[in-house]
């Protein structure tokens, strides 16, 4: 496949000329690529208006912002909110909990759709394949509220269906309140994420798999490759770019734990492991009205996200992958 991009159909554009084109005669570049720039324009306008225009909002983090007084009327306080955040008694715990969940996410939740997509790809009965495919992505449509109440139904200490089975299997000593115990909080969160998002996540990989040139399999088979070698030598390399892109993009959201899911699963008994930046910020920002403080936390998460996403992109490139660009 044509993976390395040929330079454009340059009408005798040498490399030297091109470099100059980028620097000095901007007009020349604009003229030569006018169609491409034209196509770029609506998108750039979108990002300028809806993404960059509101970015002045981060100044809230350095103010004691009151919506009523607005951006110009609220007093400036410098780095006060950042100091509060980093010196607060909860910072270490929030960081640890957030990172722990992120780690579990990378190790378990991220690869799950890839594995399921590969398994689906190996299915030869097209009816089964289609049915399974159309069923497993449905949970994506249910809100976390519904997921949480289903979880409760299944895992409640008293009458939960699954806790009942476990009790039948292991006897009454195995009576555990899964919804309350600290040690069961993370497994349940991960289970919920797997249940809700795995099927949905396969879609992008299935689309990538659909793009694999069948001739490659043909060729591999001619070389005497069995199924697993075909998987290894043809299928995996074909979806690798997608996996890399997804991984890099996911790294930027590492500190996002998903507020609603965690908020719903938090109880008085598991709060010490359940508190993450997202829930804390919600409580501080929305319930307590500390908009500036929660913006400061958001800013901190944003900086971390930028470092992570550009860092992992750099790393991917160092490892010989294409990266984001």
């Amino acid at each position: 496949m044509a993976t390395d991009l040929a330079p454009p159909p340059p009408k005798a554009a040498t490399k030297a000329k091109k470099r100059r084109a980028g620097k000095v005669p901007l007009r020349a570049a604009l003229a030569r690529y006018r169609w491409l720039y034209l196509m770029l324009l609506p998108g750039v306008a979108y990002f300028a208006i809806f993404k960059y225009l509101p970015m002045y909002g981060v100044t809230i983090a350095f103010q004691d912002f009151l919506p009523f007084l607005g951006y110009s009327g609220s007093p400036w306080v410098g780095f006060k909110h950042f100091e509060d955040l980093f010196s607060g008694p909860d910072f270490g715990r929030l960081m640890f909990n957030t990172l722990f969940l992120a780690l579990l996410h990378i190790v378990i939740v991220f690869p799950a759709p890839i594995i399921v997509a590969l398994m689906l790809n190996e299915l030869r009965v097209s009816f089964v394949k289609r049915s399974v495919q159309s069923l497993i992505y449905i949970p994506h449509f249910l809100s976390w509220t519904i997921v949480a109440s289903l979880t409760y139904l299944l895992f409640a200490a008293d009458f939960g269906v699954i806790s009942g089975w476990i009790r039948d299997l292991l006897g009454d000593t195995a009576k555990v309140d899964y919804m309350a115990q600290e040690e069961w909080f993370r497994p349940l969160i991960i289970l919920q994420q797997l249940w809700k998002q795995t099927g949905w996540g396969t879609i992008i990989y299935l689309a990538a798999l659909a793009g694999v040139d069948p001739n490659l399999y043909e060729a591999a088979r001619m070389d005497g490759a069995g199924r697993f070698r075909q998987l290894w030598h043809v299928t995996l390399p074909a979806i690798r770019p997608t996996v890399v892109v997804m991984a890099i993009l996911a790294s930027g959201n590492l500190l996002d734990s998903g507020f609603e899911q965690i908020w719903l699963m938090t109880t008085s008994l598991n709060r010490s492991v359940a508190d993450v930046f997202d829930t804390y910020v919600y409580y501080a920002g929305i319930t307590q009205g500390a908009i500036s403080y929660s913006t400061a936390v958001g800013l901190f998460k944003g900086v971390a996200g930028v470092i992570l996403i550009f860092g992992s992109n750099w790393l991917a490139k160092r490892l010989g992958q294409r990266g984001l660009f």
Binding site: L53, P54, M55, G57, V58, G252, I291, T295, G302, L324
Partner: peptide, 16 residues
Amino acid sequence: IFTMVFSGGMIPTYLV
């Protein structure tokens, strides 16, 4: 890519 992790927040976006 910057906008994926950074945003001005709810209130300024509302104002725009």
